[in-house]
Design a protein around this nucleic acid. Sequence first.
DNA 1: ATTGTTAATTGGTCATACTATTTTACCACT
DNA 2: AGTGGTAAAATAGTATGACCAATTAACAAT
Lengths: 235, 235
Amino acid sequence: MLLKAVRSQRRFEQVAEQISKLISKGKLKAGMRLPPERELAKQLKVSRPTVREAMIALEITGLVEVRVGSGIYVLDSSKQKNKISNKIADIGHGPLELIEARKEIEGTNAAMAAQRIDAKILKKMEKAIDKMVKEDMSGSNADREFHLLLAKATGNRVLENITDYLWQQQQHSPMWKKLIELMKEKKLHNVILDDHRNLLESLRNKDSEQAQKIMRNHLNHARDIYFDIIDDDEA
Amino acid sequence: MLLKAVRSQRRFEQVAEQISKLISKGKLKAGMRLPPERELAKQLKVSRPTVREAMIALEITGLVEVRVGSGIYVLDSSKQKNKISNKIADIGHGPLELIEARKEIEGTNAAMAAQRIDAKILKKMEKAIDKMVKEDMSGSNADREFHLLLAKATGNRVLENITDYLWQQQQHSPMWKKLIELMKEKKLHNVILDDHRNLLESLRNKDSEQAQKIMRNHLNHARDIYFDIIDDDEA
DNA sequence: ATTGTTAATTGGTCATACTATTTTACCACT
DNA sequence: AGTGGTAAAATAGTATGACCAATTAACAAT
């Protein structure tokens, strides 16, 4: 697949992007009112519906606020919703950074879960391991499931959501697919399974320290595999 | 303020909400195509532009994908963007969960920063402390700035974004305002300042363990203050 | 100064027409 | 049978103009 899909950018996207840049550049500051929709349409040489669509897009992104009968206002950046997702969409995180963040946060998860996990989730994690044996890593859904269950076992929904978010980011990265392929080739499958099994054992023993240690080591594996991949690419 | 603002919900919002619920209920499954815009307009008794606005809203939320000339399709939930922000918007996290998550993640930040921080950021953190002395906690912007600088010092942008996200969540919670008030009343201001100064000192010494310890303790303070607040409320 | 009224501004919605893209069906040719 | 091209149908994209609804500003009345 050498060809990239030609994504026809719609007008409202272009308009939204333009305004968005003006805001991030500081030309449009928080609290300022944008020109009326009709005026924007004239200036940008597009129809008013198109401008409206762009405004709705910006509103949902959390960049502006629409006040009926009054106008459209630039929002204070501290009040902006999901800034986190915006940034990601713009630049994307490096795989190494993601793995490192996972190492710290999921390491914490493991330690916390060891003290709080209940039989129910323990059971589910066992099942996830079984499923992974059958799956043979195709798609690695069971892998993800295992890690998310661990996050859930912390009892802290913030950590749970953040962990979920980290995995989503990972899946979007092209490197992730390669990593899965490589796992199948090199039979790394079993290494991962062993890590999971050992982790489960320390959870049963409520051994926080060991659980954390295993998880951190587990992600060091992932980092090493990543280095293998980029070495191959450069070779 | 007993009265709640009457938020005139716009048509497209109602339409988007309705479709959104159908998806989360499973009536509309991933991959399914929605009826054409004209058809939806007829069924919902609204105009086509309104339907279009709703579709754009859903597209940006990451629930559907619009394919020109083909139709509008429900996206696979794993491909949905910022699921994290959606969840938050729905339920909101408990203050205790947020503080606990901060304790773990910012504790990690402190330890990591101690090993990687450079003179430049160190300088900025000093300035943030000075600013906080003057500010007298009004708004506590300097407090936030200090913590975000620490996150930046890790050199890991994922952790930086997540930390930023945690503080945003915090600000939206009503408890946070009370906490700031309480700080002013009880002169907790100085306790926080001392924590920050001590943390800075251990960063200079590149003492990871101590830095982490101080940060975790710092957030235990925040937790204690929270308990004071709810005790007062119940009394 | 405060209140009430009116007019102007601005976003919200609708109806309709036309364009651009994609998909489908069909046909001709091999 | 299969391949490729062509026309038609379906569908989203955009534009125009009109009118409604909410807000704001100006002004008059008290």
